[in-house]
Design a protein around this nucleic acid. Structure first.
Length: 1043
RNA sequence: GGGAGAUUAGCUCAGUGGUAGAGCGCUUCGUUCACAUCGAAGAUGUCAGGGGUUCAAAUCCCUUAUCUCCCACCA
């Protein structure tokens, strides 16, 4: 069956994929040489909240190229696939899907929601795997992993080779907890009011938006006044005024309700008279102190800053330094609090606290100081109200505005607050796109400062290399300034934090803090924090427990059973007797406490313990991807074989999110680097450089591209675009071009088929032909192989693609196939067939890592093959098969053909017209080169005969060549003026070159300073150019005589 | 505010010291047996501006301009 004119990608891809799968061609270690070194790559696990986009196609193409290249080279290769559970992103996707059926997550039980989410995950994970297979990704699919595999609800537990990722994550949490690398604390965190969860710093996008700044007057208590004096740089007074207020600026007026103080810089003379005094907090019936702190910038605004510790990161730090209470104003949805005691009561208590300072953090947090009228309002609504109310009280800096009453037509004056339009950086949730609220909450943190150093050291010493090197600077900068990592999320989808809380009766009447540390007798964890609830009297607020008080104790353990054991152990170690209660796990913190807990004599009642409802940041688990996918904590053979991994190929955008955290966590957990090399690539943009997004509608679906152009074309484009650094603009015109490239190779194979090249062909070593053309193309293949290896070793996928393009299209198709045509009819026919078969095999082998489908298809159909192409040995031939004489001769031949063609085209000689050519002058080398290749030259340059001649006849054009000079008699055909112009143009170009070369060679400094080979090259060039120029001048002279 | 990067042909980009390249697009010609998803030929650049180092600069240094990205707490 003869080959089609084009490669049918759609049907071939399916067939080839099935072929590979049937052969289990991508299993870990497939095609490995005995004793071969390992080459392992962890896929950056795609999120299961959607489908793959073009960036994934790019990323995975690069990985596949490396993996296929190594597999063919006989490395023990593993490409580990898998998916990420994508915490917030998946929960959002599931909630959106449920919303279409009018179902809210809050109306479901956690278990029911998770059940639904697992089903959703199954669908998307299957889709993602299908997409990767369409792309040709040669992952070991039998090992497909998932960052939540093995977690409760997983329906695929026990899948072949699929590691229990959940257990690994939990184990790491417990171990890090026991090493004090993880702690719980009430901190100001980034709170997402849309998802009602904390998020990490990295999940916050700071975006500049148009904002406003208001100015308020906080009046001094007791009607006091002071002299407000401003001075210029020289110290001269340029403003003086008696004031009864301090001026405060804010971009978030609603937070003033939670102010705890006003801060000024200690050196700020303007406010020195009033430091330590109090001001009335507008709208709030409270007095707050004026304090000093280094934070306020005296040169900015009024120099005075309101301190709202619970809603601003800077203010929080100031508040902590100065023991200013942080009053939380908002609920989890970003609305003004409506909980707790009535405002009047809360504000009374706040005054007491301000006077006596006797309180606890817990009490301050429970105090709702939002005045009644603002309670329950959304934060943005509250902002408007606060501004309006302060303005009404005359406490806003205002301006008189003249306005027209639309009904009466009369003018009137109104007092409007001065609102400065101001660009402000506002924090947004990267998933929710809503404004992030700093919120004081209890969260779990990784104490990154403790584990960052080895991660820095590994890159500094080069144990792990980041490519391109600019990524290292970014890496250092972030890690050297690392903040604690908030890892708890108030979500349902994820690894639930393995910490249980029990309310333990304080039988012994212990007072103060008894926190239980890890001890000899408590090997599985520790009681972390000590807390108190339901205190019976006020004294408890001072941190003392009454005998009837309760201890809320937290136990970190891999399972509830282990947590119970720990509780019992602690009890025994504290009391010397067994726990008289039965511990029973309940779903959530009980709303009401069993009375027995207050009656210390009751025995035999159940004590409820419950698990922390929060889940871990998705990056905590993906941070363990390298070891988790290999079966850690089991010492699996794969772990020993493939870890540390060879290279991580990923987008520069997740350097912090993922790469840095994997470095820290692998080093912290198994004390080894996760990978030897990190290759960071840019983001894929559309043809105009715009970010692809669904709302803009410029998203390119990789499957659409594959359907239209084939996976190979997309892959080749990806490789060709992958130069180091920058963003990548993807243009479908370019993909089409590379599809054509595939067709070109396809047709070369088709040509070979038509000429019997494949008959009886088997894979074999390079033939040793006698014909120069055949020697030459073998040498070209060897050069190409070296270029590709060199390029891929340096992650220069673009250079590898370029080398292939130039070899296959520029050398094999443009020249070698054409040269072979006449040879098939001559004495060298047999060796030419053998050489062509071999050369085309090399094209397939060398191109396979980039374009696997078309090459495997041709491989299967062109000869009898012992192995799949994807397992065929990568060639090692080099300089030994390059014949310099053949190389020089073919260069001469191709240059001559080019020159003749060029001259003919410019003289408008009809393409089909065969010309008689005259040899005016030929040295020995040129004569030999001509004789060897006469048929080829005549055929490709359309020359009928070559006759020696003493001089060019009238009406001929001249073709100079190294060691020779030819003439094409074209009397009656050529236009003398045109020929003159042609020659003159060439001569001008050469003269310019000669001038340059002479300029350099005549400069004694050049000859003295430049390297010898550069000087030699320049001299050789000069000789050659002058020779050429002389010939051109002779020809021009002759034309002048004619004219 | 700090950091990184970019600026080369109409477009998208290679090119890190030896006198500028590719693909696409454009112009002209071409259906003879591998390929019109093709072939042959051609045009196109003060390598952002200025200064410096060097025998020699797109390439190294300084500077200016413009753009992009990352990080950051100016109320």
């Amino acid at each position: 069956m003869p080959m089609e004119k084009t490669f049918d990608a759609a049907q071939a891809e399916a067939r080839i994929t099935a072929l590979w799968e049937a052969a289990e061609a991508f299993r870990a270690g497939a095609n490995a040489r005995p004793g071969a070194p390992a080459f392992s790559v962890m896929i950056p696990p795609p999120n299961v909240n959607g489908s793959l986009h073009i960036g994934h196609a790019f990323n995975n193409t690069l990985q596949d190229i490396l993996v296929r290249w190594h597999r063919m080279r006989g490395f023990d290769t593993l490409w580990q696939p898998g998916q990420d559970h994508a915490g917030i992103a998946l929960q959002l996707a599931v909630e959106n899907e449920l919303a279409q059926s009018q179902i809210q997550r809050r109306d479901m039980t956690r278990a029911a929601f998770l059940d639904y989410a697992w089903g959703y995950k199954e669908r998307t994970a299957d889709r993602i795997v299908g997409q990767l297979k369409r792309l040709g990704a040669s992952c070991d699919w039998s090992r497909n992993a998932f960052t939540m595999a093995g977690a409760p609800g997983d329906t695929r537990i026990g899948h072949e080779n699929s590691p229990n990722f959940h257990d690994a994550v939990i184990k790491v949490f417990v171990e890090m907890y026991n090493k004090d690398l993880i702690y719980r604390g009430k901190r100001l965190v980034n709170w997402d009011p849309r998802f009602e969860t904390a998020i990490s710093d990295l999940e916050v996008e700071n975006i500049e938006v148009a904002g406003h700044m208001w100015h308020f007057k906080y009046r001094l208590a007791g009607g006091e006044t002071y002299e407000y004096v401003e001075r210029d740089a020289a110290g001269a007074v340029n403003f003086r005024e008696t004031r009864d207020y301090i001026s405060i600026a804010t971009t978030r007026p609603e937070t003033m309700l939670g102010d705890g103080a006003v801060a000024v810089h200690p050196s700020d003379a303007r406010y020195a008279p009033i430091v330590g005094k109090f001001v009335h907090l507008p709208l709030c019936d409270r007095l707050i102190p004026i304090i000093t702190d280094e934070y306020p910038d005296p040169t900015f605004g009024s120099g005075a800053v309101k301190i709202t510790g619970a809603h601003d990161f800077n203010d929080y730090a100031v508040a902590k330094r100065n023991s200013i209470p942080c009053y939380r104003l908002m609920d989890t949805r970003g609305a003004m609090r409506a909980d707790g005691a009535p405002y009047e009561q809360a504000v009374l208590r706040a005054r007491e606290i301000a006077a006596a300072s006797a309180t606890t953090e817990a009490e301050v947090d429970s105090l709702n100081l939002v005045p009644t009228k603002y309670r329950g309002l959304d934060r943005f609504e509250a902002r408007k109200q606060v501004v309006a109310d302060i303005t009404a009280q005359g406490l806003a800096v205002t301006v008189l505005v003249k306005s027209l009453d639309p009904e009466t037509g009369s003018e009137h004056l109104t007092l409007e607050p001065v609102v400065e339009a101001k660009k402000i950086m506002q924090p947004f949730g990267d998933r929710s796109k809503v404004v992030i609220e700093p919120m004081l909450t209890d969260q779990w943190f990784v104490d990154t400062a403790q584990i960052v150093e080895p991660a820095l050291e590994a890159v500094r010493t080069g144990r792990t290399k980041i490519i391109p090197a600019s990524g290292e600077k970014t890496y250092y900068h972030w890690l050297e300034n690392i903040e604690p990592w908030c890892i708890s999320r108030q979500l349902w989808w994820g690894h639930q934090i393995p910490v249980w809380t029990a309310m333990v009766p304080n039988l012994q009447g212990d007072v103060g803090t008894w926190s239980v540390r890890v001890g000899e007798d408590i090997p599985l964890g520790k009681a972390a924090e000590f807390n108190h609830k339901h205190a019976q009297d006020e004294t408890a607020l001072g941190g003392k427990l009454t005998p009837a008080g309760l201890l809320t104790m937290q136990f970190c353990a891999a399972t509830a059973e282990e947590a119970k054991r720990q509780i019992e152990n602690v009890w025994v170690s504290r009391t010397g007797r067994p726990l008289p209660y039965k511990l029973v796990e309940v779903d959530s913190e009980p709303k009401e406490w069993p009375q027995f807990l207050f009656n210390t004599t009751t025995k035999g009642t159940d004590i409820p313990i419950w698990r922390d409802p929060d889940v871990l940041d998705t990056w905590f688990s993906s941070g363990l991807w390298p070891i988790g996918t290999l079966g850690w904590p089991e010492q699996t053979p794969e772990l020993q074989r493939y870890f540390p991994t060879s290279v991580l190929v990923t987008g520069a955008d997740i350097l912090f999110f993922w790469v840095a955290r994997m470095m820290m966590m692998q080093l912290a957990v198994v004390n080894d680097i996760p990978f030897h090399t990190v290759y960071l690539h840019g983001l894929v943009r559309d043809a105009k450089g715009k970010k692809m997004s669904k709302s803009v509608g410029n998203v390119i679906d990789p499957l659409d591209v594959i359907d239209e152009y084939g996976a190979d074309a997309l892959r080749f484009s990806n490789a060709a675009m992958a130069s180091l650094g920058g963003t990548l603009k993807l243009d479908t015109a370019r993909i089409a071009g590379y599809r054509n490239f595939g067709t070109k190779l396809w047709n070369a194979a088709r040509f070979a088929e038509m000429n019997g090249v494949w008959e009886g062909h088997t894979t074999g070593p390079a033939p040793t032909p006698t014909a120069t053309v055949n020697k030459w193309i073998i040498g070209e293949a060897a050069k190409t192989r070296a270029e590709i290896d060199d390029a891929l070793a340096n992650y220069r996928f673009d250079q590898a693609a370029d080398a292939l393009y130039r070899f296959i299209w520029g050398k094999v198709c443009d020249w070698y196939v054409e040269f072979a045509k006449p040879l098939f009819d001559g004495p060298d026919a047999i060796e030419t067939r053998a050489t062509m078969a071999w050369v085309l095999d090399q094209c397939l082998i060398l191109l396979h890592p980039i374009s696997p489908f078309l090459t495997e298809e041709l491989w299967q159909t062109t000869g009898s093959r012992a192995k799949l192409l994807c397992h065929t040995d990568w060639p090692a031939y080099g300089a030994e098969v390059i014949d310099p004489a053949a190389d020089a001769e073919l260069t001469w031949v191709t240059t001559l053909i080019d020159d003749i063609r060029s001259a003919r085209a410019q003289m408008h000689v009809p393409v089909g017209l065969r010309l008689d050519m005259l040899a005016l002058d030929m040295d020995a080398d040129a004569t030999a080169a001509w004789k060897n290749n006469e048929t080829l030259i005549k055929r490709l340059a359309r020359i009928e005969t070559l006759t020696p001649a003493a001089a060019a006849p009238k009406g001929s054009i001249t073709i100079p060549a190294p060691g020779a000079s030819f003439a094409l008699p074209l009397a009656g055909i050529i236009d003398i003026a045109a020929e003159q112009a042609r020659l003159q143009k060439t001569l001008d170009k050469i003269s310019k070159e000669i001038n340059g070369l002479k300029g350099r060679l005549n400069n004694p400094n050049f000859v003295a300073s430049a390297p010898e080979d550069v000087v030699d090259e320049a001299m050789a060039n000069l000789v050659a150019r002058e020779d050429e120029a002389a010939k051109l001048e002779t020809a021009l002279q002759r034309l002048k005589e004619l004219a």
